[in-house]
Amino acid sequence: MHVIYGGTFDPIHHGHLRLALEVVDALQVERVNLVPCHIPPHRSGTGATSAQRLEMICLAIEGEARLCVDDRELQRAGASYTADTLRQLRHELGPHQPLVMVVGTDAFASFDQWREWRGIPELAHIVVVSRPGSELPEGSAASCLLDERRAETVSDLWQAPAGKILEFDSPLIDISATGIRQRISGGHSVRYLLPDSVLQRIHEQGLYGACPDRNF
């Protein structure tokens, strides 16, 4: 089984990292591949460049064999669309290997706004992770899709290459990259919300309004 967990990771933090490891354990896989997007289609840019975000991810997962980074979306020009990434992976993996994408409830709630959203379940399974304060609106396209394709157990994902949607209740670490950026720009400490190596690089490069000379 090949598992991807995409996002802007702007910046990557302990919530991202802990969730990825919970997915490793829950799905009984060797690793989760973190896939940073180049240009997010549904938001206006990022606070750090693609190269800076990639570097921070590499710093964050250094020494952790169960997490790796897949920078394919950073190598493509233009907006990063999940359907394009999944098609490329499916071509590489072949038609039979299970492919899984991990997404939060908040993002999945607007799944019908994703490009080629109807075709995505034909390319991969979807693991929908509960997020604090996010629920699927009753009767929404996302809710109906979940009902149609619901996986009852993890073993369902191993039985087919794609097509199932599994709800996953992970131990919640309510950390947001938006909140981290706001705290940094306001001059507040974000220690212990993200790896020290990442925080050090943020201050060295003055990202998100950080003061390079400030003791983090």
Rank of each mutant, 00 (worst) to 15 (best):
G45V: 09
V35D: 04
L146Q: 06
R31L: 03
V29R: 13
P41W: 05
C68V: 13
H14R: 11
P40Q: 07
M1K: 11
A51H: 04
S176K: 08
A109N: 08
Q159N: 09
I173K: 10
V198S: 01
A210E: 00
G133Q: 01
A79E: 13
I175S: 03
L89H: 11
E92G: 08
I61V: 15
Y208F: 13
R131K: 00
A65M: 07
P98A: 07
G163H: 00
V3Y: 07
R43H: 09
G139R: 10
F168Y: 14
D70C: 05
Q52F: 01
L34E: 03
L21V: 11
D106P: 06
G119C: 08
P137H: 06
Q28K: 14
L136S: 12
P121E: 06
V35R: 00
A177F: 04
T82P: 08
V190T: 14
P121V: 02
H14S: 08
Q75V: 10
L19Y: 02
E55H: 05
K164M: 04
C68Q: 12
A177I: 05
V32H: 06
L54K: 03
R150V: 13
Y208M: 06
A160M: 12
Y192R: 11
A26M: 11
V103C: 12
E30G: 15
R18M: 12
R90D: 10
L21E: 13
